[in-house]
Amino acid sequence: MELFNSESKKIISDPINVNNPISLQVLGICSALAVTIRLDQAIIMTLAVIFVLCSSNVILSLIRNYIPNRVRIVIMLSVIASLVSVVDELLKAYLYDMSKQLSVFVGLIITNCIIMGRAEAFALKNGPSKAFLDGIGNGFGYGLIIIIVSFFRELFGAGTITLPDGGAGYVLWRIPESWYAAGYENVGLLVLSPGAFIILGLVIWVQREMAGVEEDA
């Protein structure tokens, strides 16, 4: 199969735009909010999700013809749980500070509905190379949203922009003291949980406006 024909492009680009996992399929919101306090956490989380999503899609797609339909949920869960354990141990070994900050939310990738949802909806019906592309597309679609949310939460809530590095994060830019002296203030609410819900709600709105999709509710 050709890797970059129009069909594979569609598999990758759809989930980033018109079929975004967070704002349109409404999957994986649980972890999307908790890790968006700082940009570096969101970036690491995105990488972890892309890794788990691609590998689980490929593995499940390879064994899809041997899985009895009745027990497929248990099989999917055990494949995903093993992959997440690998990520969890890797983070603990190489990025200990980060794994402390993310705490239980790395483990919760298991129950992140994106992974189960894509396995069920796509990987069990398609070949491994397509399933891999689907994993990449949905992973980036997820990452795009949480990186936007965390950028706004960190910038306006804490006044910094932090990129991931080996330790506690590298501060790329921080709001200068002179702004505070001139009366600028951080919006503390954004760091707390209500801020996450409200920003994500607005991002979903904007994303749907751009993709031109509406929900019949």
Binding site: S23, V26, L189, S193, P194, G195, A196, F197, I198, L200, G201, L202, I204, W205, R208, E209, V213, E214, E215, A217
Partner: peptide, 18 residues
């Protein structure tokens, strides 16, 4: 129209959480 459904539910959850 495009805020309907999930978008609105998120905003409401934000208020509840507050």
């Amino acid at each position: 129209p495009r805020l309907r459904g999930v978008g609105m539910a998120m905003l409401l959850t934000g208020l509840l959480s507050m």
